[in-house]
């Protein structure tokens, strides 16, 4: 059982921890919190791609404003500074809950190359978002950028 001063101290330190890494659970290590941040980033890619993909597949009516907005979100997401997302020791050999392979840290130049390829592909998608055929074709480029990195650097389920 906590005494009252100890309880206040515990809450205070938990609040500080939550303030520094909001996404993490109480017991998540900094490496696990970073992995969760990466997955949140990937979910946001997936959400915006889903909006565009529904149009490309003919499941949703094409809307140039929405397409442009979603493509712009992808450019913004791909351009975010991820320096703190990838701490050493947050690979799938070190922690649970990630499929990030250790090769990411061994071949970081290659990974940066793929990160830049994604920015380029997303920028091309934004430029092509005025019509449906443009979106369809440019989504292929984004898919290739995703796949090129996942090919070598993400473990199978």
């Amino acid at each position: 059982m906590f005494t009252k001063p100890k309880l206040i101290a515990a809450i205070a330190s938990a609040t500080i921890a939550a303030g520094t890494a909001f996404a993490g659970g109480h017991n998540a290590s900094p490496e696990q919190q970073a992995a969760k941040a990466r997955q949140a980033q990937m979910n946001l890619y997936g959400y915006n791609l889903g909006v565009l993909g529904a149009m490309a597949k003919g499941e949703a009516e094409f809307n140039a404003d929405i397409a442009k907005g979603s493509a712009a979100n992808l450019v913004a997401l791909a351009s975010m500074n991820q320096a703190t997302y990838w701490p050493a020791g947050s690979d799938n050999a070190s922690i649970e809950g990630t499929r990030a392979l250790p090769a990411i840290w061994e071949k970081s130049d290659e990974v940066f190359g793929y990160a830049n390829a994604l920015i380029e592909a997303a920028t091309a998608l934004e430029a092509a978002s005025g019509d449906l055929d443009g979106v369809r074709a440019a989504l292929g480029g984004v898919g290739k950028a995703c796949g090129d990195c996942h090919k070598a650097f993400r473990a199978p389920r």
Partner: peptide, 24 residues
């Protein structure tokens, strides 16, 4: 069919590993 064209699953995750080669 769309997965085989783009590499995107219905949830817009992407193909990885050897399957990314297959999608190419």
């Amino acid at each position: 069919a769309y997965y085989l064209e783009s590499g995107f699953t219905p949830e817009f995750d992407s193909a990885g590993g050897h399957m990314a080669h297959v999608i190419e």
